[in-house]
Design a protein around this nucleic acid. Structure first.
Length: 398
DNA sequence: TCTGGGGTCCTAGGACCC
DNA sequence: TCTGGGGTCCTAGGACCC
């Protein structure tokens, strides 16, 4: 989906069309500004001048989506709001409304499923679709079906998407970016050298900032640069699995199927504070937030019908370093109190000297609540494999 | 002016078991 | 006399993705 969150917001506020708009934070200041918008007969009547601007925003957070006009200014997703404010102070900022995006997400996915039933969920705004067995799926290399999907989604929702059609997921994903927004790209096997090899290595799904930097150190910039390397050389320098994988993807090879069903592995909740908090000085506030996160995870598990038995915490310190601790208990649970108690144990094993920026709670090793394992008698408790961290404040702070 | 929230998968070492 | 071999589970960290 093209600029998904922003596009959904423009459905509500069509008067913002063509303007630089960013969706981000969802933090208090933006929420308040939106709440204070003047009354209009409809949302579309609210004057553009009444919307909050990036330059008036001070606080934490990142941009989740920027409209294409905003991108003209160099503003993009994952960018800090303060930095974005420098690049495009006049941009309108709106808070994230996840419920709304999820609702549109369900809609567009259902529309696709009705046309092409072999679909893999890739998050709120992206899917893989297997055209192979869809009637007409091969016409014009898939372009006819791609157009049908685009039109069906647009007619039902007013949202646009970009589609890449290729012999496998790897290439299709890259192709989907060739003609954004509202574009269709067909890439054939024989197009590898002309259309894929010139791309920066970073465009490969799975090559992130770290791998890209390392490739760069070897002077490898493009997918073609990787393809030109010896398989054994790649393995020697990037490891057996990664090296072999890089060799395969650089030659456009990918045999992963489109997976239509999957079970969640973990569920978590985390929050970044408006200001850094200290375990001792801000103990009460932290304790409240911590308990709340545990309750939220418990609600999520119960609502979706899962139980888990590995409970963990995540801390992000003011220096952005992350620490995690987890503990596996002897039975599956979705109970807030149990999660809170076990997470509290984890907290005692982690250093708490530095100010904290974020705290999170996670439940993993999930099974369906109605599965046999979920209700089976408690397994023998795993022995403690959790040596106390010498640096930890062992006092029971929470 | 620092940098969200919710995920998945991989690696690696240690404990433990047969 | 230094000290097998394989497998699973648990934990911590990290890369990456949407």
């Amino acid at each position: 989906m093209d600029a998904f969150y922003a596009s959904v917001e423009l459905l509500r506020y069509p008067q913002l069309k063509g303007l630089p708009v960013v969706i981000g934070g969802g933090r208090r200041k933006v929420d308040e500004a939106i709440r204070d918008l003047p009354e209009g007969r409809t949302l579309a009547d609210i004057p553009v001048d009444a919307f909050p601007r990036l330059k008036d925003y001070t606080g934490r957070g990142v941009i989740t989506t920027a409209t294409y006009p905003a991108r003209q200014f160099g503003v993009g997703s994952a960018m800090g709001l303060m930095k974005a404010a420098k690049l495009c102070p006049q941009a309108i900022i709106l808070p994230v409304d996840f419920d709304q995006y999820r609702s549109y997400s369900r809609q567009f996915k259902q529309i696709i499923l009705d046309i092409a039933p072999v679909m893999q969920d890739r998050g709120v705004d992206e899917v893989y679709i297997d055209f192979t067995e869809v009637p007409g799926g091969q016409r014009e290399g898939g372009r006819v079906l791609a157009r049908l999907i685009q039109k069906s989604i647009f007619d039902a929702t007013g949202l646009t998407c970009s589609i890449g059609v290729a012999p496998n997921k790897l290439i299709a994903k890259m192709a989907s970016e060739f003609d954004k927004p509202n574009g269709i790209s067909i890439v054939y096997e024989g197009d590898l050298q002309t259309r894929i090899w010139p791309l920066p290595a970073r465009k490969v799904n799975g090559i992130g900032p770290k791998a890209d930097a390392k490739l760069e150190r070897f002077g490898l910039r493009t997918v073609g640069d990787i393809a030109a390397q010896d398989r054994d050389w790649l393995i020697a320098n990037f490891g057996k699995a990664t090296g072999a994988w890089m060799h395969e993807v650089s030659w456009g090879r990918d045999d992963r199927p489109v997976v239509t069903e999957s079970e969640p592995v973990s569920m978590s909740r985390e929050t970044t504070f408006d200001r850094d908090l200290h375990a001792v000085r801000d103990r009460a506030e932290l304790g409240t937030i911590f308990t709340h996160l545990c309750e939220k995870v418990a609600e999520d598990l119960q609502r979706k019908g899962y139980v888990g038995k590995t409970i963990g915490i995540k801390l992000r310190y003011d220096d952005f370093k992350i620490a995690t601790r987890d503990q596996t208990i002897d039975r599956f649970t979705a109970d807030g109190k149990t999660i809170r108690q076990t997470a509290g144990q984890c907290l005692k094993r982690v250093p708490l000297e530095r100010p904290l920026r974020l705290i999170g709670v996670r439940v993993g090793a999930l099974v369906r609540a109605d599965s046999p394992e979920a209700t089976a008698p408690a397994t023998s408790a795993p022995r403690a494999r959790t040596p106390s961290d010498a640096a930890a404040l062992t006092a029971s702070l929470f």
